[in-house]
């Protein structure tokens, strides 16, 4: 088991009254598996992802339960140990590929960033070679040219591919994808989904795929978690959930999918 989340909860303490954002969430993720988390806005799915990535702020926040990555508790790790994991074992891609890349840095340098931090033994030529092969793996045409480009010279879809390449460069075990296709148009969405599936098969990386789009989740995931108001409503194999939902909320969600009937 790669990731195990036990009775995880978050309570914010930055206002007068404590506010519970996530409560009693337990699930696990095996190596090489694609787990989808689906839920409406504010259901706590992104917060859960940030917690796994170790990106939650340290103050004004109470964390409950445990999140074990390879047996180590990410929630209570010291910052140094956490940084060892980040970028090397756990990586994340974001919703907005427009703002997730540094506008003043060449693509090549950004893809190499994780190598420069975690693999100091690699020299410039080896880093470049690795970055180029990653850019080729995400099916970008002409990696050499992309390597030398700045983010504003690429389209949204290309930028999201670059983000994936930058995430994969260190050979992580877990890739967290927080609504990675929401900002993209539908044809590009489909390409990115295919790409993520291919990477999952080829590199054996586990993917935590977060979305509010049920059809995408159904397409890509092996298993699904349904979240609402910070709680886990239901979890199970993807076909089981979609064909035989047990809980009312899941049924409502599924019936809300617009169907084109001719």
């Amino acid at each position: 088991m790669l990731l195990e989340c036990k009775d995880f909860g978050i309570e914010f303490h930055d206002h007068d009254r404590p506010e519970r954002a996530v409560e009693g969430v337990s699930f696990s993720l095996d190596a090489g598996e694609i787990l989808g988390i689906v839920g409406e806005s504010g259901s706590g799915k992104s917060l859960t992802a940030l917690a796994i990535a170790g990106l939650l702020p340290r103050k004004k926040l109470k964390k409950e339960g445990e999140i074990l990555f390879d047996g180590q508790d990410v929630l209570r790790m010291d910052r140094k140990a956490l940084r060892e994991l980040q970028g090397d074992e756990i990586c994340m891609i974001f919703q907005e590929p427009m703002t997730a890349l540094n506008p003043t840095m060449r693509i090549g340098l950004q893809v190499e960033e994780a190598l420069r931090i975690h693999h100091r033994e690699m020299d410039a030529a080896a880093r470049r070679e690795r970055a180029l092969s990653c850019l080729a793996d995400v099916e970008l045409p002409d990696p050499e040219q992309v390597y030398e480009s700045y983010p504003h010279q690429l389209s949204g879809g290309m930028r999201q591919r670059v983000m994936i390449a930058a995430a994969m460069v260190g050979g992580p075990q877990l890739l967290i994808a927080d609504e990675p296709t929401t900002a993209l148009d539908v044809t590009v969405q489909a390409q990115i989904i295919k790409l993520l599936q291919k990477i999952n098969r080829k590199e054996k990386v586990a993917i935590l795929f977060i979305s509010h789009d049920l059809s995408l989740i159904r397409q890509i995931s092996h298993r699904v978690l349904v979240m609402q108001n910070g709680r886990l409503v239901e979890q199970g194999e993807v076909e089981e959930i979609f064909e035989h939902p047990c809980k009312d909320y899941t049924k409502q969600l599924l019936s809300a999918i617009p169907r084109v009937e001719l």
């Binding site: 990106l55 940084r83 994340m92 997730a100 931090i117 983000m163 930058a166």
Partner: peptide, 23 residues
Amino acid sequence: EYVESARLMGAGHLRVIFVHILP
């Protein structure tokens, strides 16, 4: 977000400030 993504790559505070933000 690019700052968050740099932090997620495991970059330390100084690296984030001087390599990523300052330019």
